[in-house]
Simulated assay, not measured.
Amino acid sequence: MWSGDELDLDAYLARIGIGTGGEGPGRELEPDLETLYAVHRAHTAAIPFESLDVTLGRPVELDVKSLQDKLVHRRRGGYCYEQNSLLAAALQRLGFEVEGRGARNRARGDRLLPVTHAVLVVTVGGEPWLCDAGYGYPGPFEPVPLGRPGAEVRQGEWTYAVHQEEDGLLVLRWLREGTWSDLYAFTPQPYHPVDYVVLNHYSSSHPRSAFLGKVIVQLPGRDVRVALLGRELSHWHPDGRVERRTVSAEELIPLLAREFGLRLSERDAADLVRIFRAED
């Protein structure tokens, strides 16, 4: 399903810091809950959410070889289809049972939005877990249990829960300043890699896509979350504080390296700065 046999697992694990002196189970990786937590946590910490190829007008490829070249070898980031497709391939290679889901974003108010977000459901010991390395700064950096609707899950300084609505819809929520807010909703219907190709086409090329013409880079840290949306850099704190400032075109490339660990090719950096300046 996820072409895990095409993935260079050692290179992927080295990229996320498992088995190279970074965070990891410290043992042979087995398809159990300890491994799932370790891989998910390490992936979200090492590979930032970013849609810079969409901004640059470059194609976004979802086959494993392309994902491996971009996110692993070139040490770039990606958005949900890339992040979760790569994570799915790695988990499948490790022996996990992995299914895809399509989710509807609810974080932008009451407006009904199309299903454009890709998430994963991983079953361990008969229990399903929501895994999502591609939602950006509000997203979870560890798995969230799906078999216990309403159960609160603490992840570092952040709290999540999956709520089940009357029609069976599952909703991921997070707690901010004592108030629960919906992030996205999804049904039990399985999604396949070919479905993500269709969603990816919309998100990378449709005129109404939120990713077109805007620099978007985010990192869901264990404590402070960081987001660059257009020219605004935000640091989100667990106590509700949000520090915001405007980023200039001159500091964009050094900031991407410092805050998100992204180092672009000379061509991509020059094109991105040009687009960034055009937003004035």
Rank of each mutant, 00 (worst) to 15 (best):
L33T: 14
S204C: 04
G168C: 13
T55N: 06
R176H: 06
L86F: 12
E243A: 14
G139M: 07
G261Y: 03
E259M: 11
A46V: 05
F276Y: 12
R258D: 15
P238L: 10
Y202S: 05
E166W: 09
A210H: 08
D223V: 11
R148D: 14
T44E: 07
P31K: 13
R176I: 04
R93A: 09
S265L: 10
Y184I: 01
C80T: 05
W129V: 04
G126V: 05
D268K: 03
C131T: 15
D195N: 15
Y137D: 08
F49C: 07
L7C: 03
G109S: 01
S234M: 14
P193R: 01
M1W: 08
D110V: 07
R111P: 03
P149W: 02
E177T: 05
K214F: 05
A103I: 08
V124Q: 12
V226H: 07
I216K: 06
A103V: 13
W174E: 08
E279D: 13
E99H: 12
L146M: 13
L113M: 11
V217N: 06
V217M: 05
L9T: 10
P143A: 08
Y137H: 12
A42R: 01
R148F: 09
G109C: 07
Q155V: 09
L7T: 13
V226N: 00
G147S: 10
A185Y: 09
E6L: 10
A249V: 13
G240P: 05
L183N: 04
V242L: 03
